[in-house]
C-alpha cells in the first residue's frame, strides 16, 4: 500500500511540471487563481504565426540533425574499430567520452570561445558550425556506452576469423554481421544525441546566441514576456522530446521481444 503511495507521488512530481506548462499554454489568464479562468488557442496560433518560431524550429532541426549525422559518421566507425582492432585506443576512448561528464559545459564553452572566435584565424562562433562540431564530443558517450555493451556480448574476433576462412572481408563481416547486432545501442545513441542537441543551452547561448537563434535561445527571448508564448514553446519542445523518446522505446521494445 505504502509502495503505491510512493509510486503515485513520484509519478505526480514527475509529470506536474509538464502539465503546468501545457495548461499555461492554453490558459486565457492564470494569475491570481488556482486554476486557469478560461482556455484558448490564441497563444498557440500566435506563436505558430510568429516568424521567430519558424526560424528557431528550423535552426534547431538543422543543428540537431546535422550534429546527429556528423556524430554518427565519426563515432560509429571509431567505436567499432577501437573495439575490434585497437584495444589500447579503446581504453583511452572510454576515458575521453566520459570526460564531458566531469567537465562542465561552461568550461568547454570558455575554451571554445578562446579557440574559435578568431584568435587563431578560425571563426566558428556566431555560426551553427560551432554547435554542429562542438556537440560531437558531448554525445559520443551515448554511442560508446550502449554499443560497447552490445559488442561485449559478441565474439567479434571469431566472426572475423570465420569470415576470413569463408573468404569474406573484415569489412563485409563488420557491416553484415556485427553492425546489425549493435543496432539497439546505435539507436539509443541516435535518439540521445538528438535530444542533447535540441536541449542544449550553454553552447547555444554563449557561443552563438542571437546570430543563429535555436529553440532554447527563443525561450530566453520569450522569457521576458507574458509567459503564455513561452509555455507554448516549451510544450512544443516537450512534444519533440516525447516523440524522440517514443521512437527509442518502440525500437528497444521490439528488440526486447526479439531477444
Amino acid at each position: 500500500m505504502l509502495d503505491w503511495v510512493v509510486v503515485t507521488f513520484v509519478a505526480l512530481v514527475q509529470i506536474l511540471p509538464v502539465i503546468a506548462v501545457a495548461l499555461n499554454a492554453v490558459a486565457t489568464d492564470w494569475a491570481g487563481s488556482i486554476l486557469p479562468t478560461g482556455y484558448t488557442w490564441r497563444w498557440v496560433e500566435q506563436l505558430l504565426h510568429d516568424p521567430r518560431f519558424t526560424v528557431a524550429i528550423w535552426h534547431s532541426l538543422v543543428v540537431s540533425f546535422g550534429a546527429l549525422v556528423i556524430a554518427t559518421c565519426v563515432s560509429v566507425p571509431a567505436v567499432l574499430a577501437a573495439h575490434c582492432y585497437l584495444p589500447r585506443l579503446d581504453r583511452w576512448l572510454a576515458a575521453l567520452v566520459i570526460l564531458p561528464y566531469a567537465v562542465p559545459g561552461i568550461v568547454l564553452a570558455v575554451g571554445l570561445l578562446r579557440l574559435y572566435a578568431g584568435n587563431y584565424g578560425v571563426v566558428l562562433t556566431g555560426t551553427p558550425w560551432i554547435l554542429l562540431l562542438g556537440y560531437v564530443p558531448l554525445g559520443v558517450a551515448f554511442f560508446y556506452v550502449p554499443m560497447k555493451n552490445n559488442l561485449r556480448a559478441l565474439p567479434v574476433s571469431e566472426f572475423l576469423e570465420a569470415g576470413r576462412i569463408l573468404g569474406a572481408s573484415d569489412f563485409a563481416v563488420l557491416r553484415r554481421v556485427v553492425l546489425p547486432c549493435v543496432m539497439p545501442g546505435f539507436v539509443v545513441g541516435i535518439v540521445m544525441n538528438f535530444s542533447l542537441a535540441v536541449s542544449e543551452f550553454v553552447y547555444a547561448n554563449l557561443l552563438v546566441g542571437g546570430s543563429y537563434p535555436t529553440l532554447q535561445i527563443l525561450m530566453n527571448v520569450l522569457s521576458s514576456g507574458s509567459g503564455h508564448l513561452l509555455s507554448v514553446l516549451i510544450t512544443a519542445y516537450f512534444l519533440i522530446v516525447a516523440i524522440a523518446t517514443s521512437v527509442l522505446l518502440t525500437v528497444s521494445g521490439r528488440q526486447d521481444r526479439a531477444a
Binding site: P77, A78, A81
Partner: peptide, 21 residues
Amino acid sequence: LAILAAAPLLLMLLLFEILPL
C-alpha cells in the same frame, strides 16, 4: 584501416574537447 576509421573522432575530440581544456 582501423586507425583511419577512428581518426575523425579522435580529431574531433582533440579540437573540441581536449584543446579547449
